[in-house]
Amino acid sequence: MRQVRVLASQIGESVDGNREVRIYGTHNYHLAHFSQILGKLFTIRLNIFQQKFLMKFINNFLNQLPPIMFYAVGGVLVIQGHLSMGALVAALTAYKDLVAPWKSFWRTTSSIRMPRFATNRFWKTLIHRILFSRYRLSKTNRRASTATSA
């Protein structure tokens, strides 16, 4: 975001000084400078893009790993005779039914945390404004009392 602001301010300066840029022939310098900043912005966006899709990949991989492990380990146990096919199907069904309550739980806890943070911020701002306004009023009252007494 900082880089975007820098680019915007420099474009504004170049537009304001367009006449000087043409007179002194520094347009190639300005174009090279803008290209450098745009390259930095592209690199930042590319890094964000790569991190975003790496996180998506890891999330999808971890979501798909337990059923694969159930099939692999459970299949070996069924073949060896240590586990029945019904028990393996029951475990897979229980796992699939377990995901929805966890998602609901995380949504609920995240929705509870956010208003609490906003409420704390509201009260801190309100108290600060009240204290600041009292300080400002007491300061103006002192000035008024010194002006009337003089």
Rank of each mutant, 00 (worst) to 15 (best):
R136F: 13
R129C: 04
T109W: 08
A94M: 08
L77R: 14
F49I: 09
G86R: 01
Y135D: 13
P67H: 03
T26N: 06
F61S: 11
A94H: 02
A118V: 14
A8I: 07
L62T: 13
M1D: 04
R136E: 07
M69K: 04
F57H: 12
R129M: 05
F34K: 03
N63G: 00
K40E: 14
K139V: 01
K139S: 07
F70D: 05
S145R: 12
S133C: 10
G86C: 00
G86Y: 11
L137I: 13
R116L: 15
H82T: 15
S35V: 07
K96D: 01
L126K: 10
N120P: 12
I37C: 04
Y71I: 01
L54C: 10
I23D: 07
T119E: 14
E20R: 14
L46N: 11
L65H: 03
T43I: 02
S149T: 08
T125Q: 12
V73M: 15
I58D: 07
N63D: 06
A90E: 10
R136N: 08
S149K: 05
R142I: 06
R2T: 15
L83Q: 04
R142G: 08
F132N: 10
T125S: 11
F117A: 09
G12W: 00
V78F: 08
V4F: 08
A87Q: 13
M69E: 05
L98I: 00
N18R: 05
F34H: 08
R113I: 15
E20V: 11
T93R: 09
I79S: 14
Y95F: 07
L62P: 00
R142F: 00
G86E: 14
I58P: 04
L83H: 01
N141W: 09
T43E: 15
S104C: 05
V78W: 06
G12P: 08
I79Q: 15
S145W: 02
A118M: 14
G12H: 00
R116S: 12
K139E: 05
V76H: 10
S9C: 02
R113A: 14
I48R: 12
S84T: 15
A90W: 11
N18A: 10
L41C: 03
M85F: 14
H82W: 14
H33A: 11
M114Y: 01
V73L: 11
R45C: 01
P67N: 02
V15T: 02
N28K: 10
Y71D: 09
I48Q: 13
A100H: 04
S110N: 09
N18E: 02
V99Y: 01
A90G: 07
K103R: 12
Y71W: 08
N60M: 09
T26L: 08
R113E: 09
L46I: 03
T109H: 13
A100M: 06
V78G: 06
G74W: 02
E20H: 01
R143M: 11
I44N: 04
A90M: 06
L137H: 03
L83M: 11
S84E: 09
K124I: 13
I127N: 11
T109N: 11
K40M: 09
V89L: 13
L77S: 09
Q3F: 09
N141V: 13
T109D: 00
F42T: 03
I11R: 04
H27L: 09
K40C: 07
L46G: 01
A150F: 14
